[in-house]
Design a protein around this nucleic acid. Structure first.
Lengths: 232, 232
DNA sequence: CGCGAGTTTGAGGCTGTTCAAAGAGGGTGG
DNA sequence: CCACCCTCTTTGAACAGCCTCAAACTCGCG
């Protein structure tokens, strides 16, 4: 396996305080891997022997409940680390990350995690901030699910997608990976039927433009208003 | 301010790999504080200049939404750290921790956080695991809110309370702090009315015993069955 | 061109909310 | 020590939002 050039990851905030030498040492034990559309990086329940960094593309992390229902726990964006189950004192992965776009990941054996964290305090602090932010996002989502009705939750979810995966395109902002109504439903805790109805209504109002596994947001401000709840 | 004896915290997993000397150094910059029932340790939105460890008692962390709705983000149990907003790159507190029982906390100025984390890799690893577990709990809760109906969510919440704050008592297990129907509602994303109805039904079945701000679980296994969804 | 996956739309029903009001526990002050 | 009051709790009734079930439609790929 060829070495990974440090220029690929140098810009990531996670590594921004490491010296070149430290970074190279880190990359020495890493390997790269391509993940095709719809392919899973690993499966929920599998023994956690690696942790990962998403270099390019987009992943959705799903969990399946005992009775077969699925939800999307979060999206993984370029630069995010994921699958660091060992840092959470688990030895299996709690979810399944599936590529929603052609993706490239870097992976390390879990053994090196503790090593790197203990040897690079900066990395530890950065990693903790990353997890901390993720915790905050989770709390935000809990709050939304507890207090908001479906339309507002969907509005929030779409706005988040715009921020994290929005790409300006002529008439609006395109979500730049394949996303189905079902996906949005699993992100907001509702059914694809309800999502479809909501998006249809929004399309009629000129807020968005739909399509098969596609979503284009035309009026971010309008969505913002819906999300804030000052609706109508 | 008198020194804090290290025996008070020595047993906590968070510190279990620190030497006595390291621990003493840590405690040197700490102060202790009593928090009475219903009193807040700090307020949501306040500038985050300290972080805390709950030594004794019980706290509920609430968030208030823009439109005045309140939810309980989590409970803080003895040995938990909380209010480490700086580790999350925030400079204000995202929630308000209120004492649900007479409590005692230890607090440090936030400045020392980075210092200690960088100087004590063990502490960093432990802290990360703590946050990681919290993240997992949050994901569990998201999944429950997305896929389960209210009765199951309440069952899960009560079982969690039994685990974290259960005290065997004659005919069952007592939740050992003051908890209202409203609290349970805010933990599960429903209304106090619905919680009251559910608990009344459970009481009729002999699963629990209610009371003003009190809860006694008589049949954990029965609740477990409800929580798993094999109901009826 | 046909098939399958994803989407749209309708109708009906159920769970849980909202609104309303009455009932109990416990602490406090007289 | 008792009465009162405040807060928490219980319960009912009506409504509504969303889900479930069902069926048709359409886009894009093989």
């Amino acid at each position: 396996m060829a070495d990974i050039d440090r220029s690929l990851v140098r810009a990531l905030p996670l590594f921004n305080k490491l010296s070149d030498a430290e970074l190279d040492r880190l990359l020495a034990s890493a390997t790269m891997r391509r993940v095709g559309m719809g392919e899973a990086v690993f499966e929920q329940g599998q023994k956690a022997d690696r942790f990962f960094l998403l270099l390019h593309g987009r992943l959705k992390v799903t969990q399946v409940t005992a009775d077969g229902q699925q939800i999307i726990v979060r999206m993984v964006h370029p630069g995010d680390i994921f699958g660091f189950a060992k840092a959470l004192q688990r030895d299996d992965y709690p979810g399944t990350p599936t590529a929603s776009a052609e993706s490239v990941v870097i992976c390390w054996p879990t053994e090196v995690w503790g090593l790197f964290v203990e040897q690079n305090p900066h990395l530890a602090v950065n990693a903790m901030q990353t997890i901390g932010q993720r915790l905050q996002e989770a709390h935000t989502r809990i709050r939304e699910m507890a207090t908001e009705e479906v339309e507002r939750r969907v509005a929030h979810a779409v706005l988040r997608l715009v921020e994290q995966a929005g790409k300006t395109e002529g008439t609006g902002i395109r979500i730049d990976f394949q996303i189905s109504r079902q996906d949005i439903a699993e992100m907001t805790g509702t059914t694809l039927h309800t999502v479809s109805r909501i998006l249809s209504a929004w399309e009629a109002k000129g807020l968005v433009e739909g399509g098969r596994q596609k979503l284009l947001v035309r009026d971010t401000a309008g969505l913002q208003i819906l999300a804030e709840g000052q609706a109508d």
